[in-house]
């Protein structure tokens, strides 16, 4: 009985600490999932359209530890769209001089 109570208190404390951590780091946590698709789309776009690497080469360049869930390369529109951790990012190649940029900054 006593042990049960202790475990319940411990779990409560853990939740409290975790909650506090989330509140304190909310700015960082909120934008974190966006990193995966933004990094992949941006670095793939530049690798493919600026550097001139082939698709396999550029996937090897842009991939991260967290896998992405969708990838689309539109060669006509010179656009790359990537989804990862529930967020989607599109990067377009604008010109030879200025390279790639986010479509919706």
């Amino acid at each position: 009985m006593k042990i049960k109570k202790f475990i319940r208190r411990l779990a409560l404390l853990f939740l409290l600490v975790a909650g506090l951590w989330i509140v304190l780091n909310w700015t960082h946590i909120k934008s974190f999932p966006g990193i995966i698709s933004a990094f992949y789309a941006k670095e793939f776009c530049s690798c493919y359209f600026v550097v001139g690497g082939d698709e396999e080469f550029c996937h090897n360049y842009a991939r991260q530890w967290v896998p992405i869930s969708s990838f689309a390369l539109d060669k006509q529109a010179k656009a790359v769209t990537v989804t990862g951790l529930g967020r989607s990012t599109t990067v377009v190649h604008t010109s030879e001089q200025f390279g790639c940029a986010y479509r919706n900054p």
Binding site: N25, H28, I29, S31, F32, G34, I35, A38, K42, P105
Partner: peptide, 17 residues
């Protein structure tokens, strides 16, 4: 330190605009 890195936030998320 991807969570708190300001370089990553600047280049890819909160700061990129």
């Amino acid at each position: 330190s991807p969570l708190k890195s300001l370089v990553i936030a600047m280049l890819y998320t909160r700061g990129r605009n």
